[in-house]
Design a protein around this nucleic acid. Structure first.
Length: 420
DNA sequence: TCTGGGGTCCTAGGACCC
DNA sequence: TCTGGGGTCCTAGGACCC
């Protein structure tokens, strides 16, 4: 039995935590580079602001309804998320942190001695008391059903934010009135194909012939259908699996026409990715770079290209990765385009202390590398961005837009909220 | 004028092996 | 001219998630 705990309007709720004056006001939070709307308060949803819409398309609504706009403040959201998870871990024996704003709890044991709805209510109350964040709780025998339960807990106010789908009949009633595209694992494309086959509701998917689903689609959708029938098919991952790749990419604040700012941006992305790599205690043997013009402009000539290099030996040394990335910039760069985005991808990982060198491997390792990187990481852990690569040049042209950024209330001494 | 960033898993197809 | 039946590994692309 699983409980899915999901924060309500998480980013918007975080922005409100230290701004009680924003209670009941419509709020939207933008993606990186202030591009699209990625989160909305209830009030903003009620005004018809859609998820994922580019900000320029709703500028008029924002002005007319006096909607408050925020840039993404991941420093804040990450810290609040950690506090929410901390409370959840105190309440359940096993917790899988699934994303920044949701977690699965293993409540197999709880169900023997407690009423699950009462337990869900207690989770809501404790999280609110500890963090000021409101959550909804969905309880069911499979993760996919727990997701569905959570959807119902959010959608139907009468549930008071907790839905228990232990009862198969109750499951069927809910699935009957739930469109198939609300099912976890059914995205836009699949939904279209399913509807073409006459599968419109979650219940129709659950009841469909499993062999046929596998034949027409894939084992993934078959699993989803089984999960809807209460079959527990997905792993519970209490400890996150090591990552298989690490990406750092950004759209630029402004288009880039010269190679030098591109080199600066790539330098920053490599430094970021390498720091993440070291935090995972991994080394990478492959590094890829991509760069491209905007996908949305019809007038400008388009260009998009990517390349990968394989290193002689896996590395987590920013200097080594940087050299390869900069060589790739030279390889991919073409004059005459308005570049909009670039990114660095690290892959082919080996655990830090497991590397079988070849007898013919004559490359010398820099004995100072580990210490140098560790020192940099330690300094940057205390003060973000305190030490950086000269190559980055703190460029302003490519730096992402963050016009509406709120303070890092909880993670920076300089930005603590003040009470007067 | 202005359209995010970071991941995962699965499948198909090609190269290659015995 | 006819030409099996397995297997692995890799990559690209498509789908999904938040």
């Amino acid at each position: 039995m699983y409980a899915l705990v999901d924060c309500n309007n998480f980013y918007a709720a975080c922005e409100r935590l230290f701004r009680p004056d924003l209670k009941h006001r419509p709020i939207v939070v933008l993606s990186n580079n202030d591009g699209c709307v990625v989160a909305r308060s209830y009030e903003a949803k009620a005004l018809g602001i859609k998820m994922g819409v580019p900000i320029f398309k709703v500028r008029e609504d924002i002005r007319r309804h006096n909607i408050l706009v925020f840039s993404s403040n991941y420093t804040l959201y990450g810290d609040i998320s950690a506090r929410v998870m901390c409370t959840l871990e105190a309440m359940a024996p096993r917790v899988e942190v699934y994303s920044i704003d949701e977690a699965f709890l293993d409540v197999h044991g709880v169900s023997h001695c407690r009423d699950l709805v009462a337990f869900g209510g207690e989770v809501r109350q404790r999280v609110y008391q500890d963090t000021g964040i409101t959550v909804c709780v969905g309880i069911a025998p499979s993760k996919t059903l727990a997701k569905l339960a959570n959807y119902a807990a959010k959608k139907y106010p009468a549930t008071k934010g907790v839905v228990d789908l232990s009862d198969p009949l109750r499951r069927r009633r809910l699935m009957h009135i739930t469109p198939v595209d609300e099912v976890w694992g059914v995205g836009r494309r699949l939904a279209v194909r399913l509807r073409d086959m006459g599968i419109n509701t979650a219940l129709q998917l659950a009841d469909y012939n499993k062999k046929a689903l596998r034949r027409h689609f894939s084992v993934v959708l078959e699993r989803t259908a089984r999960e809807l029938n209460g079959e527990d098919c997905l792993d519970f991952e209490q400890v996150a699996e090591p990552k298989q790749q690490i990406m750092c990419s950004r759209s630029f604040g402004e288009r880039i026409h010269r190679i030098e700012p591109m080199r600066e941006a790539v330098a920053k992305y490599v430094a970021n990715a390498a720091a993440k790599l070291r935090a995972e205690h991994q080394r990478a043997q492959a590094i890829s770079l991509f760069m491209r013009t905007s996908m949305f402009s019809d007038r400008e000539p388009r260009y998009s290209n990517a390349a990968t290099v394989k290193l002689m030996r896996p590395s987590d040394d920013t200097r080594v990765l940087m050299k390869h990335a900069q060589a790739l910039v030279g390889k991919l760069w073409r004059d005459g385009f308005a570049y909009a985005k670039a990114g660095v991808l690290l892959g082919d990982f080996y655990p830090r202390y497991v590397w079988q060198p070849s007898l013919l491997d004559l490359l010398e390792v820099d004995p100072r590398a580990d210490k140098l990187m560790a020192t940099m990481d330690a300094i940057n852990a205390k003060q973000r961005g305190a030490v950086f690569w000269a190559r980055q040049n703190n460029g302003t042209q490519w730096r992402m837009k963050q016009e509406f950024l709120s303070p890092a209330y909880t993670t920076d001494w300089q930005q603590l909220p003040r009470v007067r």
